[in-house]
C-alpha cells in the first residue's frame, strides 16, 4: 500500500500550463527526487501537496485520506505534512527552540522540541535568535522544525541549494538518517542531478508540466526514455539510426542497441560509454577539458561532434586523430527519428 498517491494533477497560471496530468505514488520510507529544469512545475507540485496551492484538476491521497480532490480541500495546517523551504524561513522573533516548538501542541511540547534539536545536534544553539545562525545552521533548524511534529511526509523544496558543497553532503545524510529514524517518506525537489542521483531511492523527471520518467536512479540514468531525459540527466550523445532488432546502422557504423527496435530511431550513447582505441570509428579531437578525475574530449566524427569521457592518462589534444569504440549498447529513445 503506497503512502501517497497523486493522480492527474493539473495547474494553470494564466496562460501557462504548469502541471499537465501528473501522477505518481510514494511508498513508506522512500525518498523520491523530483528533477527538472526551472519552470518545469516541480515547486508547484510540491506546494499543491502541502496545500499551499490548489490544483485545477486531479487528486492527492495520503494513506486513506483525500487531501485534495473534486470538492475536497484540506487546509495545509490539517495535513500533517512537513515542509522545508529553499530559504530557512525561521520566525525571526522566536528563539531556535521556540521555532522548533512552533508546530508542537500539548504539555510536552518543550521536551519534544528539545529532542528534535538533539537529534540534529543543535542543542547548543537552542537559545540563539535566527539572525545569529549561519546559513547551514538555520537550514538544519528549519529541518528540525519540520520534523518535530512527526509529519507523515516531508517535502523538501531545494533546501540545500544555498549551502556550499561540503555542508550540503553533511545535511543530506542527516535528512536521510532522520527519515529512516521516523519511518516517514520524503519528496525532494531539486535541479541538481548529482544530488538527485545520490540522495533518492527513486527519481521522477518533470518536463513542461509532465512526468516524463520515474524509476530508480540507475534505471533512469542508463535507460532514459526520451532525448530530454537522456540529455538532462548527465551528458549524452544523440544519434540517428535505422534499427534492425538488436542492432542499428548509424553514422558510427553498426551499434548494438537496447531494447530491441525496428525502423528509424533516436539513440543515446553516454560519453563514458565511448572509449579511445587503436581501431574503431575515426575522428579528430577539437577540444579538451581536464576534469581532475578524467578528461572530456570533443571528437568530430562522421556522426557529428561527440563527447567522450576519456581516461585521466590520455594524451590526446586538439588536432590529434583518434579512433572511438562503444563500450555499451546504445539506448533507443522514444519518438520518431
Amino acid at each position: 500500500m503506497s503512502l501517497l498517491t497523486v493522480h492527474g494533477l493539473e495547474k494553470r497560471f494564466g496562460k501557462s500550463q504548469v502541471l499537465a496530468g501528473v501522477g505518481f505514488t510514494l511508498n513508506p520510507g522512500e525518498v523520491l527526487a523530483l528533477l527538472g529544469p526551472s519552470g518545469s512545475g516541480k515547486t508547484t507540485l510540491l506546494r499543491i501537496l502541502a496545500g499551499l496551492e490548489v490544483p485545477d484538476a486531479g487528486w492527492v491521497r495520503l494513506g486513506k485520506q483525500t487531501l485534495v480532490g473534486p470538492g475536497i480541500f484540506l487546509p495545509p495546517e490539517n495535513r500533517g505534512i512537513g515542509f522545508v523551504f529553499q530559504e530557512p524561513a525561521l520566525f525571526p522573533h522566536l528563539r531556535v527552540v521556540d521555532n522548533v516548538a512552533f508546530g508542537l501542541k500539548g504539555r510536552d511540547r518543550r521536551r519534544k522540541a528539545e529532542e528534535a534539536l538533539a537529534a540534529l545536534g543543535l542543542t547548543a544553539f537552542r537559545n540563539r535568535r535566527p539572525d545569529q545562525l549561519s546559513g547551514g545552521q538555520a537550514q538544519r533548524v528549519a529541518l528540525a522544525r519540520a520534523l518535530a511534529p512527526k509529519p507523515r511526509i516531508l517535502l523538501l523544496d531545494e533546501p540545500f541549494t544555498s549551502l556550499d558543497a561540503g555542508l550540503r553532503e553533511g545535511i543530506r545524510s542527516e535528512v536521510r538518517a532522520a527519515i529512516r529514524a521516523q519511518k516517514i517518506a520524503a519528496l525532494l525537489v531539486t535541479h541538481d542531478q548529482e544530488e538527485a542521483l545520490a540522495f533518492a531511492d527513486r527519481l521522477a523527471v518533470l518536463h513542461r508540466g509532465r512526468l516524463v520518467q520515474i524509476g530508480t536512479p540507475e534505471e533512469v540514468y542508463h535507460r532514459p526514455r526520451t532525448p530530454f531525459v537522456a540529455s538532462f540527466l548527465g551528458h549524452t550523445n544523440l544519434l540517428k539510426g535505422e534499427a534492425h532488432g538488436d542492432h542499428a546502422e548509424t553514422a558510427l557504423g553498426r551499434l548494438k542497441i537496447v531494447p530491441r527496435a525496428r525502423g528509424p530511431v533516436w539513440l543515446s550513447l553516454r560519453p563514458e560509454h565511448l572509449a579511445l582505441a587503436a581501431h574503431g570509428v575515426p575522428g579528430k579531437v577539437v577540444d579538451r577539458a581536464f576534469k581532475g578525475h578524467d578528461v572530456t574530449l570533443w571528437v568530430r566524427t562522421a556522426a557529428g561532434e561527440l563527447r567522450v569521457q576519456a581516461d585521466y592518462r590520455t594524451r590526446a589534444k586538439p588536432g590529434d586523430a583518434v579512433r572511438l569504440v562503444p563500450r555499451e549498447p546504445a539506448v533507443v529513445l522514444e519518438g520518431e527519428a
Binding site: A50, G51, L52, P75, P76, E77, N78, R79, G80, I81, G82, F83, F85, E87, A89, F91, P92, H93, F102, G103, K105, A142, R145, A146, P149
Partner: peptide
C-alpha cells in the same frame, strides 16, 4: 515579512487566525 513565514506556519499546523496572531502580529 516574507510570505514563506506564513506558509511555514500553515505547514506546521497553525490555521490562518493563529498564524496572524503568532507570526504576523509580533513581527
Amino acid at each position: 515579512i516574507p510570505t514563506r513565514l506564513e506558509e511555514a506556519s500553515r505547514t506546521l499546523g497553525r490555521g490562518p487566525l493563529e498564524t496572524g496572531l503568532r507570526v504576523l502580529l509580533p513581527l
